[in-house]
Design a protein around this nucleic acid. Structure first.
Lengths: 345, 345
DNA sequence: TTGTAAGCGTTATCAC
DNA sequence: GTGATAACGCTTACAA
């Protein structure tokens, strides 16, 4: 038992144990078996397993100018949307011998900037980012350094960067068309403040356009709420409730966080869904199947989006030089109990 | 504008730009300002910002034998329990200049082993692990290599390792005592298979002991279910339902995943909560406030657990050599609507 | 206060 | 086929 020295086993130790030079060991590690005799290969193999040798990624990276690290900055790690994407990304990532460095910006541009610096110090080979939208310049810097960047979900203006996400126009109009088809006469859209987040803009815009295409009277019912301030959400909700009394009405939420908060408030107000109003939301959190016997949702192929983002960045790392691409996935409508058909009177 | 060279800016480039030696720059980076004249310091400062220099962590690590990387292997990144811990851990981590490498084992020992290897190759300075329990030997290897390890939530036998988690005995008996006090006569405990997961054993054991201490008749009602197999969950649930007809009854679930599945099934069976039976669960997912107007839960201080685990490992990395510690946090009871008081007949 | 030089664990370029 | 040897970007004796 000499395992306690393990931490320090280097390529040189292996070479000595196997009675060869470190060059040969390096060749073995690189899989260049054709440059090795069977005998040496066996000897090295043996020494490596015996000594539990693991190549030092830092040394390797220093030499080869690759870290085998991919950074991913997500906006909200508590959101099921995020973790599903993470799973997709990580699966592909580790299959390809890379490791993911996951950072959570909490939608805070300052934190995002801090992670940028750290990741750059680690010389990540690529970055996937669900950006706050507040660090345009850093993104640009990354590009100038030739570090591949993939935007997840949220785009930024003026920069030519690969983007993977949802087709927000299709998704939103699908949702709105469905609600209109169910004969809801007033439809409100509740979203977090659009500010610098492109996704929110797109959904909002598509919401309004689609309603207008139906000559629908409620195309102005867009509410931006701050989910961290329940009072704010409450007052906006109350406004809509007061304003839409007596007609078939529905709320569409831009994500599951907003949906959750609204439901909380509706329960406080003793309002029933779908009797008092219909509810429908973006994303498809696991709990949407058990609340109100099932909430109608617009589901994103989250795992697939994570996979696609990672595949794309790996291609860029491998040197693929085509112009910036955008991959927009289609959403899936899950019709459940909170949006029943309304008989026209 | 010479930013496009940024990717390759090295300490040497900075030194040249500032007209000093790289040693001085290194001193500056290490914050050893007392060894520097004000003038040189200013020059270096200027050069660094001008060139947007970022020290190369790999080179630094290679030399100093530190990676500034902390690995964390979690069992299920989709679980809100996990992400809350992650947030706590990451906050402390980045405050201290470290970066987290988050790996998701999906409760799969094979995957866990793969991540072990990768993390070891990256020469992580420490490991926090929510272990599957299936890689005892690797944990041992880590210890022998003097890489600090902290067990999150789940312990392993025979190994002296720091552990941070919940006081499962206290938590479970608190839950059971509460239910008994509410006059439930049959109480079932639904958990995932205990197998190698210590937490599950502890909760199960505490469940049974606490019931026995009340001379309660239902101390045998422990069900182990495979949450990925709804049929399995369904048959166990049905067994309990059939077996407990006509008396006040309650189900306590060992985590929120099990809780979700059971609720799904109860709704399929058109059973009402709390009218047909009471429900209570470990963890406190955000949706527990909106289902059944609020589910009674046993809440863990997840964020705090993440913080504590990270603080502990940083202390170990800094060389603190005290014997292995165990930090067990108290759970908090959230009384809501699914466990009403039953009038004794 | 400053600089020179060696070395961390790899890979790659040469020779043999 | 194989093995010295020089980098990679940094830190740290040791000199000056």
């Amino acid at each position: 038992m000499v395992k306690q020295e393990n931490a320090k086993v280097t390529i040189y130790d292996v070479a000595r144990e196997a009675g060869v030079s470190k060059t040969s060991v390096s060749r073995y590690l690189g899989g260049r078996y054709d440059e090795l005799s069977d005998k040496t290969r066996k000897k090295i193999e043996l020494a490596i397993t015996k000594m539990e040798y693991r190549p030092n990624t830092m040394a390797r990276g220093l030499k080869s100018n690759k870290s085998y690290l991919i950074g991913i900055i997500v906006a909200d790690i508590n959101n099921p949307y995020t973790t599903a994407i993470l799973r997709g990304a990580e699966d592909i990532c580790s299959q390809n011998g890379y490791n993911l460095m996951i950072c959570n910006s909490d939608n805070n541009p300052e934190k995002e900037r801090g992670y940028f610096d750290m990741l750059l110090s680690h010389r990540i080979d690529g970055l996937i980012i669900h950006t706050t939208g507040g660090n345009h310049d850093m993104l640009k810097q990354m590009q100038e350094q030739k570090t591949p960047v993939i935007l997840l979900d949220r785009k930024v203006p003026d920069l030519e960067i690969d983007t993977v996400g949802l087709d927000n126009f299709q998704a939103t109009s699908q949702a709105v068309n469905y609600l209109v088809g169910q004969n809801y006469e007033r439809i409100a859209f509740f979203s977090e403040p659009a500010s610098k987040v492109s996704t929110r803009h797109e959904r909002r815009q598509s919401f309004q356009q689609t309603l207008m295409s139906h000559s629908h009277p409620s195309s102005g019912d867009v509410y931006e709420v701050n989910v961290d301030d329940l009072k704010d959400v409450e007052s906006k909700l109350q406004h809509f409730l007061d304003d839409s009394k007596g007609v078939p009405r529905a709320i569409l939420t831009a994500n599951s966080v907003v949906l959750l908060k609204l439901i909380l408030l509706l329960q406080e107000k003793k309002l029933s869904v779908p009797e008092d109003l219909a509810m429908m939301g973006f994303d498809n959190p696991d709990w949407s199947t058990i609340v109100y016997s099932g909430i109608t949702t617009i589901e994103q192929p989250t795992y697939q989006i994570g996979v696609a983002a990672m595949e794309m960045i790996l291609r860029r790392i491998d040197g693929q030089a085509s112009p910036a691409q955008t991959m927009a996935y289609q959403a899936k409508l899950n019709i459940r109990e909170t949006t029943p058909f309304i008989q026209k009177s």
